[in-house]
């Protein structure tokens, strides 16, 4: 399925761009992400546990950055195997635009596919779940990046961990 959205972020474009390329930030924002480890500048190994009501599946796979046009756009794609649950893959084309000097407009176009048992059983809810997860990611990202100065990296990470904990607490 395809979906699009946009998120206004209260931070300059360069800051947002750096965050988009920061594995720690991505890890904190990808819903359910439990591990994200860079294996090269553009590749990461990832693990995530997704929980939607009674449905809970753990995925392992990789995240790749491509079509990089710094500091304006890239494609972030990931695919993971959820064992007996099946697999999931998705990619998002992310485009940044200045929205005044201190704010950035992030627009995204997401393509997501699932396979195996989750495809076979998720028919009624897959679309809205994917939409929700994509929305959550960009919302978390905006929250994480937004309120902070470009040079406050360490603090940003702390804050994001806080957010991540909140996410876990709710699950």
């Amino acid at each position: 399925m395809d979906m699009t959205g946009e998120q206004k972020i209260s931070a300059p474009r360069q800051t947002v761009w750096l965050a988009l390329n920061d594995a720690e930030v991505l890890k904190a924002c990808i819903p359910g992400c439990t591990a994200l480890e860079k294996t090269s500048d553009t590749e990461m190994k990832a693990a995530a546990t997704l929980s939607v009501g009674p449905v809970k599946a753990s995925f392992t796979g990789n995240v790749t950055l491509s079509e990089i046009d710094a500091p304006t756009s890239y494609v972030i794609s990931g695919q993971g195997s959820g064992g007996v649950a099946g697999f999931a893959k998705g990619s998002a084309k992310v485009v940044l635009a200045d929205d005044g000097p201190e704010a950035t407009l992030l627009t995204y176009t997401v393509k997501a596919d699932v396979g195996g048992k989750i495809a076979q059983l998720g028919g009624r809810l897959i679309d809205q779940t994917a939409k929700k997860l994509a929305g959550e990611f960009f919302k978390s990202f905006s929250d994480a990046v937004g309120p902070h100065a470009p040079d406050a990296d360490a603090e940003t990470v702390e804050k994001k961990k806080g957010f991540f904990k909140r996410l876990l607490g709710k699950a």
Partner: peptide
């Protein structure tokens, strides 16, 4: 993509 979408 050839994924069967019915299982229940």
């Amino acid at each position: 993509e050839g994924q069967l979408l019915v299982g229940s």
